[in-house]
Each structure stands twice: as C-alpha cells, then as structure tokens.
Design a protein around this nucleic acid. Structure first.
Lengths: 151, 151
DNA sequence: TCCTTTGTATGATTTTTATCATGTTTTAGG
DNA sequence: CCTAAAACATGATAAAAATCATACAAAGGA
C-alpha cells in the first residue's frame, strides 16, 4: 500500500529502474553478473516486473546482459558513462522529458505558457541533474561494504 | 491521445485544476461567477470531471462557489491569497508533496537516500515555486483582453 | 410554494499503469 | 549434441487514475 502514488517527478517504473541501476553499479561489472532472481528484493519489486524493466534497459544499451548459463545483468565500462536521464528516457519514453509542466502541446520556449517561466526552471534543473549524473558517479562515494540496499 | 502521460511533475488532474484556477483568477470575483458548463472547454477537460475537481477545491476553501440560480464558481479576495501549492495539495493529497523522489518511505532529511542530495534540491525548488505563487500573482501580467485560453 | 438552476455527492465505466505468468530463444557445460 | 540455465518476448490480469453518469440538495425567482 503506497501512499505516494501521485505528484511524482517520475513514475514508479522509473524509480525501480534507477534503484536497479544503482544496484548494478555497486555490485557488477563485465566479469560479475547478477540474476534478476538475486536482486529483485533489494529493489523492492517483483522478479518478473524487474526482469521486464531490465530487459528494456538492456535492449537500449543502458545496461548489459548475457543469456544462458553464467549469464545475468551487469554494467560495463561503457554503461557506466550513461546517465540517469538515459534510464528515465528508456522507461518513460523519449518525449516525456521535454513535455510542458501543464501538458500543453503548443508550449515551448518560443511560445511559452503562463507557467513556463514559473515552473520551467525547476523542471530544467531536475533534467540537468538527471543528465549530469552518470551511473558511475551514482555510487562514487559509497563503499561497497556500506549497506544502502534494500532501497 | 496524450503523448505526455508520464514523467509528470504533477498529475493530469492537478494540471486541470491549475488551468481552471488561472481561468477563475482571470475572469471571476465575488460578483462575477462562472458555470462549469461555460469554462470546461477552456480548460480542455470534460464538464463533469472539471466539476468534480472544482468541488474538491471549493470544499477545501481554495476557491468559492454558490449554489442555485445565479450561482457558480469564483475566486474571492481571500482565495486569491492561496497558492498553487494549496491547489496541488488538495488534488494530489497532502503528503504526496513531501515524498522521496525514489519513493522510499524511510527517506527524509535526517536519513537521506542516495538520490536525496542529487534530486532533492530541484524538487525543493519546484515546491518553493508552487508555494511562492499566489493565485493572484498568476495573472498579474496578463491583460484580460489578451487571450491565453484555451490552455 | 413550486420550479428551475445551480453545485454536491456518489458510484459506474474506461483507460492507463503496474504486475504477473507462461512460453521461446540463446548460451555454456557435460 | 543434449540439457539446464539464463535472458527475451508476449500476452493476461490487477490496480490505480481518469472519466462519465445519475441522483440529490440548496438557492433564488415567479
């Protein structure tokens, strides 16, 4: 029973994806993969739903995966250069990020709506933060021993 | 067909409410009321759904209403001192506003999650903007003749 | 007082999002 | 090869949000 369903900056799915990506950044690399089965509880989501999200991220090259025995999900060196924005875009869709705060299709920088100057900057700040945060930097200050999961 | 359903700062309902409140600020006062019937197209939402939202706002004192013949919805002098945050809280619920970006229930200022320092500030900026904007100030610079609706 | 006009309250329906389940494909080891 | 272990793909179900519809209550005018 989640009390915080609305007023979301991002959807629940994207939140799961971000948590998962933090987990992968912390625990995996090309040699050390992990199974959905072994991480879903840490992300506080069901195995099959996390699988779906990870497949989506993998298909778009944000994370890596290997099929078959010994396979699993992991973050490669290249993956670590991707940003949180990449994660959000895969899950929420490309255009969602640029949408007007009021959902007005005709609103853009040239033809701003009444709220544009008001809420635009903070939305932009949010986007900038997502863009500036590489997956690598997510876990920079976190010593592997320090337990931050489950999230 | 709305392309911008996710990655929302606020829900569609709150967006309708904000648009409606801008409309009321622009067109009404204690003497001049307006019917849902006469404003729903300007807000780009159905009559009955807008009615529900306005009733919600009215019940919480954010806007005013009068029943019966000659009635309608309007913004009183006092209403105009309310803020966008009041509108959002009525529609989204009180606690939604303070929720963690990752939806972690144990996350707060004392015990911040990994994303807190990263996205917290821009969320806070967003909240501050909502709080700082009175309904009166929403239409400050807008001459009544200048058509900004439908939104 | 009665009738029309309005908002109010409540519940049903639809659409979207989230979740679950089941089968398919690929890979590595024996 | 064959088999088991893994991701992948797809569709079914459940939950939540958005939308619609219908009956009720209050207010004002004739």
């Amino acid at each position: 029973m989640d009390l915080f369903l609305t007023y979301q900056m991002i959807t629940k799915s994207a939140k799961y994806a971000i948590k998962a990506v933090i987990y992968l950044a912390l625990k995996t690399d090309d040699q050390n993969r992990i199974l959905v089965r072994d991480m879903h509880t840490e992300v506080s989501v069901s195995e099959s739903y996390l699988a779906k999200l990870l497949q989506d991220l993998s298909r778009h090259g944000v994370i890596s995966s290997a099929k078959g025995r010994g396979g699993g999900f992991y973050l490669s060196k290249e993956n670590r250069r991707r940003t949180l924005m990449d994660v959000v875009k895969v899950i929420e869709g490309e255009d969602a990020v640029n949408a007007c705060v009021l959902g007005i299709s005709s609103c853009d920088t040239d033809n701003p709506c009444v709220m544009h100057h008001l809420l635009g900057p903070s939305k932009m700040a949010f986007n900038k933060a997502l863009e500036a945060t590489t997956l690598a930097s997510l876990v920079d200050g976190i010593p592997e021993k320090h337990p931050i999961f489950p999230l």
